[in-house]
């Protein structure tokens, strides 16, 4: 079984997690930039974080045989902090990097005017860079937040098939799929969304344009939830091909729209991955 976790925050996880994920079948993942739990106080703090998502973290992943890509953005929460908003001006130079496969996570947290501005500006950045967008739907007032999100996407220059609406549940799946966007579900170890409810959603809505992720981070979360959904799908009578579609082909198709996915895992061998010191002379 091959698994692509389309939303997981590996900087918050240990190497044991990488090993367990590999053993469970995870071969590729996307790490969206997000809030770190502790508020940042300057753009420079974002830049160090973005650099880690483009440098150290892919190296760590490669040591465990997992292809690492990322999405970069000013997250919804910190879009409200004027000390952080200059990040928007610096994003263009980050969005040209090879392993950036989308703009994200963007979206609404509390639905403020500052969030309106950051969401619209970053949807435009995605359109300018021919990148998809990973759009987080708010945890509070979710359905209203989703409708407002879809309105902003409609007004943007980004086509809906370039948008992944994430953290959906039973109350928001309908509106999300009707919008033409891709639908993402984060499976948590608590009541937000679990693997059996996910299976029911797949039974009702089919396996097209649906992605499942662990959204694991520094909070209570489980980086093996993708595998647990796969097992629950098989147990409920879905075929191996259905599982492969939801847990591999769909994320590959969505993020593949960036033209930047490199799924052949590069070895961390210093003299083979790109480093060409030895290739000619000796």
């Amino acid at each position: 079984m091959r698994i692509f976790d389309p939303h997981i925050h590996m900087t918050s996880r240990t190497t044991d997690d990488y090993r367990a994920m590999y053993d469970a079948g995870v071969r590729a993942l996307v790490e969206p930039s997000f809030w770190l739990g502790q508020p940042r106080t300057s753009p420079a703090s974002f830049f160090d974080y973005f650099d880690a998502l483009l440098g150290w973290e892919p190296f760590r992943a490669s040591q465990y045989g997992i292809a690492h890509h990322c999405t970069l953005a000013l997250n919804p929460k910190e879009a409200n902090d004027p000390r952080c908003t200059p990040v928007l001006d610096a994003l263009p130079r980050y969005l040209v990097k090879d392993s950036v496969v989308a703009v994200g996570e963007i979206g609404y947290d509390s639905m403020t005017p500052a969030e309106d501005h950051a969401l619209a500006a970053q949807l435009q950045l995605a359109a300018d860079h021919a990148l998809p967008a990973l759009v987080h739907t708010p945890h509070r007032d979710k359905l209203a937040g989703l409708h407002r999100t879809i309105d902003v996407i409609r007004e943007s220059n980004l086509p809906p098939e370039f948008v992944l609406l994430d953290h959906l549940n039973e109350t928001t799946v309908e509106a999300a799929t009707d919008s033409g966007c891709w639908a993402g579900f984060s499976i948590y170890p608590d009541t937000k969304m679990d693997e059996d409810r996910m299976v029911t959603i797949l039974q009702n809505h089919g396996t097209e344009k649906i992605l499942v992720n662990s959204a694991a981070d520094w909070g209570k979360s489980d980086p093996l939830k993708t595998r647990k959904v796969a097992d629950a799908m098989l147990k409920a009578g879905f075929t191996e091909d259905d599982v492969d579609q939801v847990l591999w082909r769909n994320p590959v198709a969505f993020y593949g729209q960036s033209g930047r996915l490199q799924l052949d895992v590069l070895t961390p061998d210093p003299l083979h991955e790109g480093n060409s010191i030895l290739r000619g002379g000796e």
Binding site: D89, A90, R93, D98, G259, R260, Q262, G274, N275
Partner: peptide
């Protein structure tokens, strides 16, 4: 903008996508 880069520096980042990753260096 303090974050603006000359155009060739943006191309520097995209080199592998246009000329092949094996030629990026």
């Amino acid at each position: 903008s303090p974050y603006a880069s000359p155009p060739w520096e943006l191309r520097y980042a995209a080199a592998g996508r246009h000329c092949g990753q094996e030629n990026a260096d």
